[in-house]
């Protein structure tokens, strides 16, 4: 058995673990610059996580095992997705384990248990967050599936590694497709909704009635909270990685090309920096939507994704 692919796998997971908080730090820094504030250190998210890990856990008295199990599950699943998605290099040992449909399924498990944990303690806020999360997911998940289906129709495969390979082999023509335009647009809308960013949800707010994801974490503390926070940072990182792999796969190393890895790393950093700037640009220029506007937003995403799939049949 060759050991090298497994080392690469480990490297990729480490990049995910380390890169996710860094990316959040980068986003915050840009936001501060744009808003004319003095920014905290780029490494502030690490300090926050460290602080949370060193604290004791305070648990609600009627919390069941689901509440305590969920942080580990969510964190573990996010890591597993990180091992499957080609962030740096394709054809990793884990990449045949699951295709894009299964990746969507993995995100769904994490969401399922987070929503259950929100309802476990029996407060009004937790239930509210769970209900809203499931509402948003029920529109965002099909949209996500249709988006990846459209892309996989082009590359005749639902495996992410295979998609990246086909797209890079066919050069610029492969991504310059009508169906990709629609899919990209839909994907951006979904990514915003799924990772809880403005205008669907606001990760910085603690104003009770407008928040969605935070309400479910309200009763968490200590290491549990740290794991949940870290997982949601990684989720943002992973969504961008998936988008990157599907819509701008240039620079991801092919299998067995060791020399391409530094280059891939370089591209990775550049892309993330640019995406961070774009993301912040959107977040500062948009206001958060009313809750029931988000359904229109997601409905539109779903239909645009469908249109993308149709345009594959009509135009290509």
């Amino acid at each position: 058995m060759k050991i090298l692919p497994y080392i690469l796998e480990l490297v990729q997971v480490l990049i995910l673990l380390v890169g996710a908080p860094l990316f959040v730090g980068w986003i915050r820094r840009i936001k501060c610059w744009l808003q004319g504030r003095k920014s905290p250190s780029l490494f502030q998210p690490y300090f926050e996580l460290l602080k949370l890990f060193s604290k004791d856990v305070y648990l609600a008295e009627n919390a069941s095992w689901i509440f305590r199990f969920t942080p580990y599950l969510v964190f573990g699943i996010t890591l597993l997705i990180g091992a499957i998605v080609p962030i740096l290099i394709i054809d990793l040992p884990f990449s045949t384990t699951a295709d894009v449909i299964a990746i969507v399924g993995l995100f769904a498990i994490a969401r399922f248990f987070t929503a259950l944990a929100g309802m476990d303690v029996g407060t009004a806020f937790g239930g509210m967050g769970s209900s809203r999360t499931m509402m948003i997911a029920s529109l965002a998940e099909p949209a996500m599936l249709i988006t990846v289906f459209t892309v996989s129709l082009t590359s005749h495969s639902t495996s992410l590694s295979q998609i990246v390979q086909t797209l890079t082999n066919n050069g610029i023509l492969a991504t310059l497709r009508p169906s990709f335009v629609f899919s990209l647009w839909a994907f951006l809308m979904i990514a915003v909704a799924e990772t809880g960013r403005v205008p669907v949800d606001n990760p910085d707010t603690h104003l009770e009635l407008t928040m969605i994801h935070e309400t479910m974490l309200l009763e968490y503390s200590g290491r549990h909270l740290a794991l949940m926070e870290w997982a949601s940072m990684m989720k943002l990182f992973l969504f961008i990685s998936i988008g990157k792999a599907v819509f701008m796969p240039w620079g991801i190393a092919q299998s067995g090309q060791l020399l391409a890895i530094p280059l891939a790393l370089f591209f990775l950093i550049i892309k993330f920096m640019v995406i961070g700037v774009i993301l912040v640009g959107f977040e500062t220029s948009l206001a958060k939507m009313r809750l029931f506007r988000t359904t229109e937003f997601l409905g539109a995403a779903l239909l645009i994704a469908t249109l993308g799939m149709l345009s594959y049949f009509i135009l290509e």
Binding site: L173, L176, R177, P178, S179, V181, W185, E296, S311, L315
Partner: peptide, 23 residues
């Protein structure tokens, strides 16, 4: 071939703007 691809792309963008105007 590339020109053709670009034309199709632009057509899709026209459609996309039409849909965007709708909403």
């Amino acid at each position: 071939q590339i020109t053709e691809q670009i034309i199709i792309m632009l057509a899709a963008l026209v459609l996309l703007t039409a849909f965007a105007m709708l909403v």
